[in-house]
């Protein structure tokens, strides 16, 4: 098996998690917060997929998040792709379970900070959010993303690893 379609199978396997996060956002709509996990879900695949597959996977995850939200095209996807390439190139950064956890938290937080900033810049003229309020809101949103990543990375990672095992991808060869 050449595993050419591995990234797509992984995407299908990951999508329910994203959907779950959307549902959570929907039922917690009064909070006015987005339950964002798209950053966390790219970490595990990056350990085992080939780089081009990583890129496709990360881009798709990013575009899925953007597709139904009024944020500029590509803002999440391109950041995710950049981070995916980086993690894929320095696999030693995610060599152990605890490293994966740190990476998931960091990546999820960074991507959140990115889209929050871009969304703010885009709607700044219309909304009455000033800089201080923005900092407060961004902190809330980033913290939530970090917490979500910390809580969910373990089950997500287990599920994704299971799918990759099933496809027959080689186990991560991480030698620092």
């Amino acid at each position: 098996m050449t595993h050419r379609g591995a990234w797509f199978l992984l995407l299908l396997a990951t999508y329910p998690w994203l959907l779950g996060a959307d549902l959570l956002s929907s039922s917690m709509a009064t909070w006015g917060l987005s339950f964002f996990i798209s950053g966390a879900v790219i970490v595990t695949p990056c350990r085992r997929l080939k780089r081009w597959q990583c890129v496709l996977f990360a881009a798709s995850i990013g575009f899925l998040y953007e597709a139904m939200r009024p944020i500029p095209d590509g803002s999440v996807a391109l950041v995710l792709v950049f981070l995916a390439i980086y993690v894929n190139s320095y696999r030693s950064l995610v060599r152990s379970a605890s490293h994966v956890l740190y990476a998931a938290i960091t990546i999820n937080a960074v991507v959140t900070l990115t889209w929050v900033t871009i969304a703010h810049l885009q709607c700044a003229p219309a909304s009455s959010v000033d800089t201080f309020t923005f900092l407060y809101l961004a902190t809330l949103q980033v913290s939530l993303s970090a917490i979500l990543a910390a809580l969910l990375i373990s089950p997500i990672s287990t599920a994704q690893n299971w799918v990759m095992d099933a496809i027959g991808l080689p186990v991560a060869d991480i030698t620092a």
Partner: peptide
Amino acid sequence: SRDTSSWWQR
């Protein structure tokens, strides 16, 4: 579904 944040409400 509802998707609300500080920057969009839809």
